[in-house]
């Protein structure tokens, strides 16, 4: 810290004394004349001529060789970047198209699958309905057949009933009277009795 302060103080002292010393030195220097304003010196005017030659040469080398070279590199870069960007843009467009196609294909496939499923369901339903109808028809015919059979059995049973009645009557008459009844008479009587029954 102390060294730093000392440096600053010394610098300030030097600056203040420098300004005053410059003021003292200046008149002497101006008395001698600024070398830049000594136009009698051929070297002062000579540097203008040499400067013109050097400046012109510098300009020619820069404008003909150096700057076009830099410009070419920059231009190459910008065309290359824009080409790469174009390629990238085209690639992105292709990718977008592919994605759109994929989505469309997915959507189509989904719709087709749904349609197939619906068709299968419809067919299945129709088949089930048909089967049900067939079963119903078969059942109905079986029921009617059974009913016919029952009716036939019933009439056959009723037919047998007369014989049973006649036999029973004969047996009862013979057990009661001890004599066998006339078969034709019994049959006639059973026939007469059964005629009253609406079977």
């Amino acid at each position: 810290m102390g060294v730093m302060m000392k440096t600053v103080r010394a610098g300030l002292l030097a600056a203040v004394s420098g300004v005053s010393l410059l003021a003292m030195a200046a008149p002497g220097a101006y008395a001698a004349g600024m070398p830049q304003l000594d136009f009698h010196n051929p070297l002062v005017t000579g540097q203008v001529i040499w400067g013109a030659v050097i400046f012109l040469g510098f300009y020619l080398v820069l404008s003909r060789v150096m700057l076009p070279r830099v410009g070419r590199v920059l231009e190459d870069r910008s065309t290359r970047i824009s080409n790469d960007l174009d390629v990238a843009r085209a690639a992105k467009q292709d990718a977008d198209k592919a994605v759109a196609e994929l989505q469309q294909a997915r959507k189509d496939a989904l719709a087709e699958a749904q349609a197939n499923l619906q068709k299968a369901l419809d067919e299945e339903q129709r088949a089930a309905e048909q089967k049900m109808q067939e079963i119903n028809a078969r059942l109905a015919s079986e029921i009617s057949e059974a009913e016919q059979r029952v009716a036939a059995e019933k009439s056959r049973a009723f037919a047998a009933l007369k014989d049973i009645a006649a036999d029973t009557t004969q047996a009862l008459v013979s057990r009661l009277t001890g004599t066998a009844a006339d078969a034709s008479l019994v049959a006639q009587k059973v026939e007469g009795a059964s005629a009253h029954l609406s079977l």
Binding site: L43, T45, G46, Q47, I49, W50, G51, F55, F58
Partner: peptide, 13 residues
């Protein structure tokens, strides 16, 4: 009339 001024111009260029 070639002084150090043109010399340094050449150096700079």
């Amino acid at each position: 009339r070639f002084s150090q001024s043109p010399l340094y111009m050449l150096v700079a260029v």
